[in-house]
């Protein structure tokens, strides 16, 4: 199971559980036999909140080190790609791009299983830089903000053609703003 399905399944399980719990509680209020109401609500509530906090803290501790900011930080990239986003295309080059005269270089080919670095900025409004694999799954992303360069490091595990889509709404051409590169 991939992470996309996993995320959806975790969510759906939780949502169904909450729905069933809601239904159960609703049912219990229709024809209660005897006094079934919850005793000691204060203590039970306190206990539940402590449990919930603990669960959240554990989740925090597990997920924070997996944040993208720390990925491949200590691995110098084998390829460097400069990306300047503008309405409505991506200019990509192995060489730094002159903002006064932006032009793309040769088409981009990246090595598989080696860290690469994208230096992403924008020449006009905010854009997104989302990398999709050949199964149209979002692999990784960063934002392209004018005036700043975001450095996205990644290691591509599968060879193939990767597509780039803009992931920050930028105007009428937003859905057609795309580009691609090859990993082999």
């Amino acid at each position: 199971m991939n992470e996309y399905k996993f995320i959806l399944l975790v969510f759906l399980d939780a949502a169904i559980l909450i729905g069933l719990l809601g239904y159960y509680i609703y049912k219990s209020s229709l024809n209660p036999e005897g006094d079934k109401s919850i005793k000691n609500p204060l203590r039970k509530r306190f206990f539940f909140l402590i449990m919930l906090s603990a669960v959240l803290l554990i989740l925090l501790a597990i997920t924070i080190p997996k944040s993208p900011y720390f990925l491949f930080a200590d691995k110098p990239p084998s390829k460097l790609v400069f990306v300047d986003a503008k309405q409505f295309n991506f200019i990509m080059s192995y060489q730094a791009i002159n903002p006064k005269n932006p032009s793309a270089g040769e088409s981009i080919e990246l090595p598989v299983d080696q860290p690469v670095e994208f230096r992403v900025t924008s020449l006009d409004v905010n854009h997104g830089f989302g990398i999709y694999n050949s199964r149209a799954e979002l692999v990784t992303q960063t934002q392209a903000m004018p005036g700043y360069v975001n450095r996205l490091r990644w290691e591509f595990k599968e060879p193939g053609t990767y597509k780039i889509l803009c992931l920050e709404y930028c105007g009428l051409g937003h859905p057609v703003m795309s580009s691609s590169f090859i990993v082999k």
Binding site: I25, Y26, S28, S29, L30, N31, P32, D35, K36, S37, I38, P41, R45, F48, L49, L52, S53, L56, L59, L60, T63, I64
Partner: peptide, 30 residues
């Protein structure tokens, strides 16, 4: 991330529990 996680506890969890305790096992005029 910390604030997004813990903003949910005081407001959402406390309120939801209050509603659950109010409804559960009590005859409610729906």
């Amino acid at each position: 991330q910390l604030a997004s996680y813990f903003a949910s506890i005081p407001a959402a969890a406390v309120s939801a529990l209050s509603v659950i305790f109010l409804v559960y096992g009590n005859k409610i005029k729906w």
